Amino acid sequence: MTPKTFVSALAAAKLPSVFNPWRDRCSIHDRRDAAARRRSNLQGMLEAALDAHVETIWIARDLGYRGGRRTGVPLTDEVHLTHASALMGGIALERATQGPEIAERTAAIVWQVLGRIGQPVMLWNVFPFHPHDADDPMSNRCHSRAEREETWPLLQALVSMVQPKRIVAIGRDAHLALAGLETEVTAIRHPSYGGQREFINGMYGLYGIAGDPVGSPELPLGPRYAETAKALA
């Protein structure tokens, strides 16, 4: 499967009480071509990840309504689209929504860590879409077992395409859900609900990074991407 066919397979999925950012359009916040922009964003991330021969996929549980639902890039809010662009070699990533940029706390912490690590990774979710309560499209809920089983082939296709040496599960729920994969899975605490420092320290330990984890660089700083990051600053 190629990045293009993978994104097309994602866009074809339709489930009740689930927002598919690569297919659906939010009538409140989205531009008219929002789904197409998000498809382009994700395809660009995938192509860059393959070009960079990324060795790791970070996988959380579900898309959040303030992050990947709006951008089409998992674990990435609108505030950090330029960070994602720089880390992946300067690819073009576009906003798909109107109005002010919306921040997501989890995305901010994830990109703080990625900025310090400075290595490209592939970001994903066990359940690739945004599950919400039936009467509240701007809520977050945990996906069901049936929803996970229905979309599991998409996760397997991604892993087969990227062929990572390691998968990092962000949070206990993601770790339990990924038990069926053949690739090695390392569990790191999710940064929400008081887990920020454990997440940061866990990731820094995984990548052999020492120092105070409080600092948050404005752009990714890896030597391979420093020139692009500087240009985007």
Rank of each mutant, 00 (worst) to 15 (best):
T2C: 07
V7C: 13
A12T: 10
K14Y: 04
V18F: 06
V18G: 02
F19N: 03
P21T: 11
P21E: 13
R23F: 04
D24H: 14
S27G: 06
I28F: 13
R31L: 15
R32Y: 12
D33T: 12
D33W: 14
A35Y: 09
R37K: 08
S40M: 14
S40I: 07
G44M: 08
E47I: 05
D51P: 06
A52G: 00
V54S: 05
V54C: 11
V54Q: 04
E55N: 06
T56W: 06
T56P: 07
T56K: 11
L63T: 10
G67M: 13
R69W: 00
G72A: 04
V73Y: 06
T76A: 11
E78K: 02
H80T: 11
L87M: 10
L87N: 01
L87Y: 01
T97E: 10
P100Q: 13
E104H: 14
R105G: 11
T106F: 07
T106M: 11
A108I: 05
I109R: 08
I109M: 12
V110I: 05
V110T: 04
W111H: 01
Q112N: 02
L114I: 00
L114K: 02
G115D: 01
M122H: 07
N125G: 12
V126Y: 08
P128C: 10
F129V: 01
C142D: 15
R145S: 13
E147P: 05
E147F: 08
E150A: 15
T151V: 15
W152N: 09
L158I: 09
L158R: 06
L158P: 06
V162N: 00
R166L: 06
R166Y: 03
R166W: 01
I167K: 07
A177W: 02
A177C: 03
L178T: 00
L178W: 03
G180E: 06
E182L: 12
T186H: 09
I188Q: 00
I188E: 00
R189H: 10
P191R: 02
P191A: 03
S192D: 14
S192G: 15
Y193N: 02
G194Q: 09
G195N: 03
G195I: 03
Q196Y: 05
E198Y: 08
G205F: 10
G208W: 05
I209Q: 00
P213S: 03
V214R: 07
S216R: 09
Y225S: 08
L232T: 10
L232W: 08
